[in-house]
Amino acid sequence: MQFGPHLVLALIEGAVLSAVLALMASGLSLVFGVMRVVNVAHGEFFMLGAVTAWFVAAGTGGGPAIAFAAALVVAPLAVGTLAALADGLVLKRIAYDPERTIVATIGLLYILQQATLMTFGPAARPVEPPFNRRIALPWIGQTDEGWGLIWPWGLSVTTYKLFVIAAAVVVLVLLRRGLGRTRAGLLMRATQIDRETALAFGIPVGRVYALTFGLGAGLAALAGVLVVPLQQAHYLMGGDALLLSFITVIIGGLGSLGGTLAAAVLIGMSEGIISVFFSPTLAKIAATLLVAFVLVFRPQGLSGGPPR
């Protein structure tokens, strides 16, 4: 294949990754924005979403479409509930102290990951996509009668990949409207702006925190469900996902979902292109160093408000 079609393939991969990343990173950003804590277990919620999708698909009959639809509903709800429970049982009791929360969520990370290893096992398992038609894409090239449309072998996109992108866009639009137009969104924004004042005005901050933590985890789980037909479910898949969401949130700056979304597209696209053309390990080194240097030289990226 020539360079052009190759690049288009890389861009498609990048767009799918951007969509998944945007969902995950929005969850992480929301939790940091409202609760001012970094959730290191966020990648494990993503992994739990994928693993739950496998269990649901294995447990429901009636074909891959129904099983997948069920997973799309069940996994985010189940994982979100679990996260809200963890919030009440652990984070609330340490009063959301930033450093102790990181230590506690590292603990949560190991518990979720290792519990998955004990139940789901060390193997990677696939989930069948609900639909997966290949759509060949045209390219402009030299044909027998001069320049015209050609159909290079291998240049194609599947309907499922298009669905992932569309689903992410729909969910993110809903999330934005939910935060902007509903009462729950209003309470969240009020808590984000000033926790003390929100409390003084009778906003149930404790419940807002549990809801936010659950919602953040639910978004990660949804991303996990969407990803599992493309890459198999595995108990260690949360690590890389966490790293990428970290990068996205830190590059995008906190507070606005818009920044996170723009960063998700940027990171997803460059990751798609880099992993097609370069060594993935080298790309990861560049990414980790990028996060470190952004934090060192632009600390307002993560801290958002004044340091506490």
Partner: peptide
């Protein structure tokens, strides 16, 4: 490593 995770949470709490 499950134990390590539990220990981290219990210690923080």
């Amino acid at each position: 490593m499950l134990l390590a995770g539990l220990a981290l949470i219990l210690l923080t709490l």
